[in-house]
Write a protein that binds this DNA or RNA. Structure first.
Lengths: 150, 150
DNA sequence: ATACAATCTAAACCTTAGTTTAGGTCAAGC
DNA sequence: GCTTGACCTAAACTAAGGTTTAGATTGTAT
């Protein structure tokens, strides 16, 4: 497979693929005599992993580090295992943050739905927290407690 | 409150706060006669919302748009409500992607734990998918099906 | 042989979200 | 009235992760 086909299969742009190659993320991809990149299924699988690590927030130098370890063989198994333990923590942290954001979003939806019904923001803006519906108050407090102060 | 105190309360750097102000995210913050920014609790709450939107992936121009709508009053309630509906979808999409990544991570943990026990990657590398433990196979397949092809 | 699309490289450019630097005020305490 | 720490602006700089451009080469089809 050539770069164009790989681009279609992975959704990465051709220039991104060349960029990854240049920066050492794509190890041992072959070249034709004329210098054209030849990808096989192993390369494709490696790319899937790269994409997954990237979308879960890992930086390219760190991904390269992992690829280097892979090339280095059995002596780096421990490091690689550890990296995946760390990345699990990382992802869980991100999910936590997003879930907390979701609470503010839900609160704001209620806020603007109420404003919409009233035809004005004034009423809901001047409401006291204690007068929010129970479930809404919980959302609001979860958000506010999550960010300390005031 | 001055910018230094706000920086400590929000965790944003002073330069980031000035940058947000310059780009119109911080509307109607006062200034002393001498030109020094004066923040009040409303400004602080607005900043909390900005931080939340930003950490959930919203770009600064979009956040500015929202702030502009807020300043414009009741005629923009619908737009703001809609923005929060969209942002909910957005966040859920991000959580989905992270949850899928987590499956690969879990699979890789099993993979390298096995390699570690064996003292080499060779055995686990040459295993067939059908011989993976059931739960592991599911993780692997969820990941591979999620990315089509091959 | 020639056309043509696809590929190649290097180097310049781009965007986002700030940070840093330089040179200058502000205002509180002594 | 002077020092000192916090604040101000504009403008240049940074970093990551690519994209774009220009000009050359490859390889397949006619």
């Amino acid at each position: 497979m050539q770069i164009g086909e790989i681009s279609k299969k992975t959704g990465l742009s051709i220039s991104a693929l060349r960029y990854y190659d240049k920066h050492g993320l794509l190890q041992n991809i072959g070249r034709s005599n004329g210098g054209i990149r030849k990808f096989d299924n192993k390369d494709l699988e490696a790319l899937r992993i790269i994409i997954c690590l990237k979308t879960s927030g890992m930086k390219l130098p760190e991904i390269k580090q992992f690829m280097d370890w892979c090339s280095k063989g059995d002596t780096t198994i421990d490091k690689r295992l550890n990296m995946f333990y760390e990345q699990e923590k990382n992802i869980n942290k991100q999910i936590d943050i997003l879930s907390k954001s979701l609470k503010l979003i839900k609160f704001k939806q209620w806020y603007y739905e109420t404003a919409k019904e009233d035809g004005t923001e004034n009423n809901v803006k001047s409401m006291n927290v204690e007068d929010y519906p129970d479930d809404i108050r919980k959302l609001y407090e979860a958000f506010m407690l999550g960010s300390q102060n005031t």
